[in-house]
Amino acid sequence: MLRLPIGANLAAIKAEFIAALKSHDPEFDSEALVEVSAFADDCTILGANYSLAGDAKLAILPPVNGG
């Protein structure tokens, strides 16, 4: 679980997520993958103007290649 202030934008959420991954695994080196990943709630991909309004459960969606 990450703790961010109300109003945190997508860039801040990604930065906090990367920091948490590095804290969990000091050898984590996939920042670029997180940067190109989309963040989403259950049904919507979050846009660049998203801001955190309260408790949220978000999914991290790396580049896709179904088919």
């Binding site: 190109v36 990943s37 989309a38 989403a40 919507t44 991909i45 979050l46 846009g47 660049a48 969606l61 790396p62 580049p63 896709v64 290649n65």
Partner: peptide
């Protein structure tokens, strides 16, 4: 290996 692909965005959904 996980394969790379298309970056999702709020604009293409």
């Amino acid at each position: 290996e996980w394969l790379g692909g298309h970056i999702l965005s709020a604009d293409n959904g």
